[in-house]
Design a protein around this nucleic acid. Structure first.
Lengths: 343, 343
DNA sequence: GTGAAAGCGCTAACAC
DNA sequence: GTGTTAGCGCTTTCAC
């Protein structure tokens, strides 16, 4: 009926065509009560015929909402990012909210610019993945700007805002416990970047497991890495290139564990017969490495979905309960085994 | 000066504070001419002091723009998605446009619903990755709705809309040629999802290379996959778990190639001594797998950046030239070698 | 150079 | 149940 190309129909068009007022059209389109069923049907029919799609800008101007949710993260591995997005998107599907991706560089050093970016994006809410979820100044800015936020696995101020959590310390404890239960006592640890709170938490988890068998951190060999493959390579070399080497190495992520695997191969050390290696993340590498890496799966998808869910409910005026702690999973694969007999 | 929490400043507030009219504020904020420098400075100063951020909804209502660019794709590997996003985001940085991610399921079967989704999202433009860039009905819908689109590596109707292209057939031919030049003649092929035209194109590239050495497709073992790791695993098993197996396998992407690597390892087949494997994509897994995978790097980042660039220029009223064809790169790594002597 | 008035498409408040 | 009026924050006329 309307032959005009690319003239987006408005509620006025529908109102005229259906012989009712714009307000009635608005009511129907928003599923508000107090409209006769026959009118309702007629309006919906006309809307469909006119290929009507509501104008977010006009609606948002008056409802003071933008129907936009942001997702921030900082350079994690591709699979982490994709899981993060999948979780939020799954929850947003069918809702009148759209997801905007906002990756950062050096969030910790530029919390201010980051707050500004989020404000300019006209977001209603934002899902904050580590490490941006742990920047108090950013949270302050968001509070002031009235932008709701949901934090994924925060390590500090867990009471602030909406939180979707996991037990980072417990996850690290579990992987360390697994290695200790296999009988290992000569342990090496490769730390991640110390500015990431995850690194601290994971070390604490290792410490707890060691304590259970009467060991302390000063009895293990600790090397500093920064979560990258090359840093893992260097650290592994320091741990392995001498006589009294550990029989098991706990790396704080899979990339560094994979690097350790490669160093062991170069040094002719058999994994897992002579050396056990455990990572962290269940990233793609951990499955593609050989032997496949024992690691811990973080519930990234679940946390992200939960974060988006709570965010949306708050945006719709609802209340949300306390932080949910999502389950991690220890994945015992081929890179860990009992220590060698003489070990 | 304004102590009110979460009251977003408007140009009216700035106008009052700066002692000018709202229109003048608008002029300054949009870098329009005909404003005295002193007034300009004063307005900018007040805007900063009031932590002003323009309201996209209000601006969009009148300019008929939403300052929103979409990015669509369908279940490709994590690294492909991340490259795609990185390219578009890099171009959008600093521009008043935001990126909305719109992953699809079964785009080819639901082109209509997909067109609807894009229309409801109130996008100004959209970057279409395969296979959605090859759905004529979708392009028709977008044309009708007045939504600009940039297509990444389309395989059909290359003249429609904005195009950022690559030579998919040539890339596949190059990798096949490499394997054939090593001396392999017993070839296995693992196909990707047949709804992706990329799969067809790559097969055509393989065919061209085979033809050059006098081979035809009916002389090679072809198995169907769908670009995922598990599908590659199953396909590799069918190719390798019997006596007369190929000496080289061409997988249509890296995930399936990595899966093939794993299957070979489980079967005790040495790579590359007994079996050569080549992938496609230069994804992260191709570099982390051991041996590292010979593959072809697709210029995904470049295409995505180019697509976003052309889209933005058109959105700003500019003209864009014809499709750019971005260069692929054959990456010979450790997973390919001459066939075994008796092979 | 600058400002006043109008209105984008929609919904809140209130009338009928 | 339904319609009228007003106005969200901004930019477009067009006047001065």
């Amino acid at each position: 009926m309307e032959g005009h190309i690319s003239h987006r129909a408005t509620i006025i068009d529908i109102a005229r065509e259906a012989g009712v007022s714009p307000k009635t059209v608005s009511r129907v389109l928003n599923d508000e009560p107090h409209v006769k069923q026959s009118v309702r049907d007629k309006v919906k029919e006309v809307a469909a015929a006119l290929n009507y799609h509501p104008n977010f800008a006009a609606r948002g101007l008056i409802t003071r909402k933008n129907y936009l949710v942001g997702l921030t993260y900082e350079r994690p591995g591709p699979s982490y990012v994709v899981e993060l997005q999948r979780g939020a998107l799954e929850r947003l599907e069918g809702e009148p909210y759209r997801l905007i991706v906002l990756p950062f560089h050096d969030a910790t050093e530029r919390a201010e610019g980051l707050g500004n970016l989020l404000q300019s994006a006209s977001l209603d809410g934002v899902v904050l993945a580590p490490p941006s979820c742990d920047l108090p100044e950013l949270l302050d800015t968001l509070d002031r700007a009235g932008i709701l936020y949901a934090r994924i696995a925060p390590h500090r101020a867990k009471e602030r805002g909406i939180v979707a959590d996991m037990d980072d310390i417990g996850a690290a404890r579990d992987v360390a416990r697994h290695v200790l239960e296999l009988g290992h006592r000569k342990i090496g640890i490769i730390l991640g970047d110390r500015t990431h709170h995850a690194s601290e938490a994971r070390l604490e988890g290792y410490r707890l497991a060691l304590e259970e068998v009467g060991l302390t951190l000063d009895r293990v060999a600790i090397e500093q890495g920064d979560f990258t493959y090359p840093s893992g390579e260097a650290a592994a070399q320091r741990l392995l290139a001498h006589g009294n080497r550990p029989t098991a190495i706990l790396a704080q992520n899979d990339d560094m564990a994979a690097a350790t695997l490669m160093v062991a191969r170069d040094l002719g050390i058999a994994v897992p017969q002579e050396l056990s290696i455990a990572g962290f993340d269940d990233s793609e590498v951990s499955r593609l490495a050989w032997p496949r890496l024992t690691t811990v799966r973080q519930p990234v998808f679940e946390m992200s979905q939960d974060a988006a869910d709570k965010l949306l409910r708050r945006l719709e005026g609802g209340e949300v309960g306390p932080a949910t702690v999502h389950e991690h999973t220890l994945l015992v694969r081929q890179s860990t085994a009992p220590p060698p007999a003489g070990g």
